[in-house]
Design a protein around this nucleic acid. Structure first.
Lengths: 241, 241
DNA sequence: ATCATCTATTAGGCAAGCCTAATTTCGTCA
DNA sequence: TGACGAAATTAGGCTTGCCTAATAGATGAT
């Protein structure tokens, strides 16, 4: 059953990682169907596997109610996430990979690298806090700093913002963002937003404005740089308490 | 069944590599038992697996007579060997691994890295011809230069020689060699050899002579630097034809 | 409250790879 | 030539993970 550095099967690692990813860091319960979707596996198979993982103490499974990682499960999930993200950093920084190509490679390697190797890579890189898509990298001892970002879809018109985080799974989407001149750290201004779930238009310095579909805009994590210049709300000069 | 970059299962890759390793490059037939020993698997299991690999056209299996890789099998085996050895080089050169630690890590990674990644590592390293243990690295297109070396066990007394190749599988042995000051490229002189399968004594510059067991001496591939100074055999000045 | 619907689980199967025990084949030696 | 031991194969079983089809639980609308 073992095969990685720590003795979990690849399937087990994939389940834990997927559950962690779907639950978010506040550990919401995850539905069987959602998990099946994320893993591209039939719900029936997931049910069977969940029974085993539950028996092994990695998660708690209330039948028909979803699953939640146990402390152990969460720790192991974060270990896999750390491996994945350090690998992504290493591949881009040291081996010239594009940010749209690292995910697939890391997806396979994360099950094969030893902790020793991961830590050597982290050391060489100087312990990066974020991966190439802006996702925070869990520390050796399972801490993770969840960045508080705003989806582009919710950034008000007129705001100056910075792209901080993008989902890494869709290579096509990443190539598209690159073609627009958008990468992690890029600053832009939200120029317009069409009502009724229409696209968001942003302006980058020295480029014509671009309209981004709402589905895409929802997946782009942004940091606000400058609140709306017009209509200063209420705390302009007084420091309210 | 697939899982690597090329669609072979890990088990398949392990079988092909082990057969290639046991057969030597001239492709001798390999016995089921030897293969079972190399893979630490029961002979019965190997029999079953060989039937499948044979059906898949990766080897030809004459029952009770042993197996031989087909051209396809050999090509795939060499691909795995290349991955393994490039990985060993990369880990020692770029990530500070000792030569005794790389084998285990490469053994797992060789099943997970893509050809893309292997070639990027090879590029960064400048296409090394040998791995850290002196084994030749197959080229991208399946060529391999088999070095003609002499086992230390057969180097005549009085000869000046150089260690060129060591088996990479036994980390303990590699640590021992390091402790003696022996690594790939080290020059030494064969000082003495006890009769009846006794140890071989070698001298390294600036160190007291060391006696190496015959079993160990048989696994050390050497290049001769200077033929025996005493008793020049027969082809000293005439160039025989 | 009940039914229709969606979600989840169980039932039953399959392929990959491994195991042990039993059997067959090879090869050698008398 | 015949028998014996070593090597190889077959027989039968197990676990992991996946599948489809059938059943059971939860839920929202009437």
């Amino acid at each position: 059953m073992p095969q990685s550095s720590v003795g979990l099967s690849q399937a087990t690692e994939d389940y834990l990682k997927a559950i962690y990813g779907l639950a978010g860091d506040q550990e919401r319960a995850v539905q069987t169907t959602d998990l099946a979707g994320a893993l591209a596996i039939s719900p029936a198979s997931v049910s069977g596997m969940l029974r085993r993982l539950s028996k092994d103490g990695l998660l708690s499974h209330l039948p028909y109610r979803g699953v939640r990682l146990t402390a152990t499960g969460r720790r192991l999930a974060l270990r896999v996430v750390r491996r994945h993200r350090i690998l992504e950093c290493y591949l881009t920084n040291r081996l010239g990979y594009d940010w749209n190509a690292v995910h697939a490679e890391a997806e396979r390697l994360e099950h094969a690298v030893s902790d020793e190797l991961v830590e050597r890579m982290a050391l060489v890189l100087g312990d990066p806090p974020y991966d190439p898509h802006g996702a925070p990298i869990p520390t050796r001892d399972g801490e993770i700093a969840v960045p508080s970002l705003i989806p582009l879809a919710e950034v008000p018109i007129g705001t100056l913002a910075e792209l901080r985080m993008v989902d890494d799974k869709d290579a096509e989407r990443l190539r598209y963002l690159t073609s627009l001149g958008l990468e992690v750290g890029t600053r832009f201004e939200v120029v317009d937003r069409q009502p009724f779930d229409g696209p968001v238009t942003i302006g980058l310095p020295g480029r014509p404005p671009v309209a981004l579909g709402l589905a895409l805009a929802r997946t782009l994590g942004c940091r606000i740089h400058e609140p709306e210049p017009r209509s200063p709300p209420e705390d302009s000069l007084p420091a309210g308490a």
